[in-house]
Amino acid sequence: MSDHTPAPGAGPERSTTVPLPERRARRRGPGPGPRVPGLLALGPLLLLTVWFVGSATGLIEERTLSAPWTVARTAADLISAGTLQEHLLASAGRALLGLGVGVTTGLALALVAGLSRIGEGLVDGPMQINRAVPNLALLPLLILWFGIGEEMKVITIALAVVVPIYVHTHNALSAIDQRYVELAETLGTGRATFIGRVVLPGALPGFLLGLRFAVTAAWLSLVVVEQVNSTNGLGYMMTLAGSYGQTDVIVVGLVVYAVLGLLLDGLVRLVQRRALTWRRTLEG
C-alpha cells in the first residue's frame, strides 16, 4: 500500500513488540506534499512588508504609492464622510443587477440549447460569437445604442456574465452521463421528472463553476464601465483620484474591490459546497 518502510519479510503476523528498524526520512511523493497551515499567507505578507519598509525608508515615493498608514487614514476619512459607502453602494447595485440579469439569461439560454436541438442551433452560434469577441470591445457600440447611463452599464456587465454561465452550464448539460439518461428511460420517467431530477442537478456543478467566473467577469466590467462616464461608484472615485494624483484614494478603491471580489467568490464557493455535498472531490 504505502511505499515507505519496505521492511523485508513484513507479514501480517509480524510481532508488534519487535523494534522496527529506524525509518529513513520519508520519501516525498510526486505531489507538492501536505499543506502547511498559514503558508498561503506568505506571499501577501511579503508584499505588505515590502510596501511598509519601502514607504518608511522613502524608497517608495508618496507620488508613486501612498504609504500604508496614509491609505488607512484616507479610508477612515472617506468612511466618516460617507463617500466610500455611497460609491460602494452604487457599485454593488450595478454589479448585482448586471449579475442577476446575466445569470438568468445565461441559464435560460443554456437550458434552451441543452434540451433541444433546434434551440442549440439557434442559440449556440451567437453565444460562441459573443464569447469570441472580447466583451469590452463592444463598449463603443453599447454606448452608442444605450447611451452612457445605467442601462449601458448593466447591459455591459450582463453580457460579460452571460458567457461563462452559458458556456459552463451548456457544457455540463451535454456532458450528462448517457447511462443516467438510459436509466431514466427504463424507469419511464416523465419529461418533468427527467429535467428536474436528472438534468438540472447533474448540470449544477457546471453552473456553479460558471457562476464563479461570472462574478469575476462582472467585477471586471464594473471597473471599466464606471470609468467611462459616471458620477458615482468606486471606479468613478478612483478615476477622479487619478486625475488629482491621490494615490491613497486609488489604493483604498483597489482594496475595496479586492475585498468585495474575495467575499463574493467566497460566497459562491460556500453555495457550491452546500449544494454539492453529494460530490466527493479532492478538496474534501
Binding site: R179, L183, T186, L187, P201, W278
Partner: peptide
C-alpha cells in the same frame, strides 16, 4: 419493466431514498 445494470446507476446527487422513489 425494470432494469438493473452492472453499475448501480444511482443518481449521485440524490440520497438513497430519493433514488429509490425516483418515479
Amino acid at each position: 419493466v425494470s432494469m438493473v445494470f452492472q453499475d448501480s446507476r444511482l443518481l449521485p446527487w440524490q440520497r438513497v431514498l430519493a433514488n429509490v422513489t425516483l418515479v
